[in-house]
Amino acid sequence: MGALITWFTGSRFALTVGKWAAIALTITLFLLSLRRSGERVNEHLKLTRFRHLNLPPPLWRKAPSRAAFM
């Protein structure tokens, strides 16, 4: 069994599969990172917009519907 695993992991096929799996994982993690940073930027922009409206904190939840009319 050990010889079979050693043969498979040392084969060109396994190296190619491993390379493409690593590339796919890297791209996936990069896209998830972009999404997360975009969410953080969006939240920051919302908070700064609400601060400029000079609303007290409890009214921030209702502010998006009110901000649409401004």
Rank of each mutant, 00 (worst) to 15 (best):
M1E: 10
M1Q: 07
I5M: 15
T6L: 14
T6D: 15
T6G: 11
W7H: 07
F8D: 04
F8K: 02
T9P: 00
G10R: 13
S11T: 08
R12I: 10
F13P: 04
F13E: 11
A14Q: 02
A14V: 00
L15E: 11
L15N: 11
L15H: 10
T16H: 13
T16I: 15
V17M: 09
G18W: 03
K19D: 11
A21V: 12
A21I: 12
A24D: 10
A24P: 05
A24I: 12
A24C: 08
L25C: 08
T26L: 07
L29I: 12
L29Y: 12
L29A: 14
F30Q: 04
F30V: 09
L32Q: 08
S33Q: 04
R35I: 14
R35V: 13
R36H: 04
R36N: 02
E39R: 00
N42D: 09
N42I: 10
L45G: 02
L45A: 06
K46Q: 05
L47R: 01
H52S: 11
H52G: 11
H52D: 12
H52W: 08
H52V: 06
N54S: 14
L55E: 07
P56W: 14
P56K: 13
P56T: 12
L59D: 06
R61K: 15
K62T: 15
A63H: 00
P64C: 08
S65F: 07
R66F: 11
R66I: 15
A67P: 00
A67N: 05
A68N: 05
F69C: 09
F69D: 10
M70P: 03
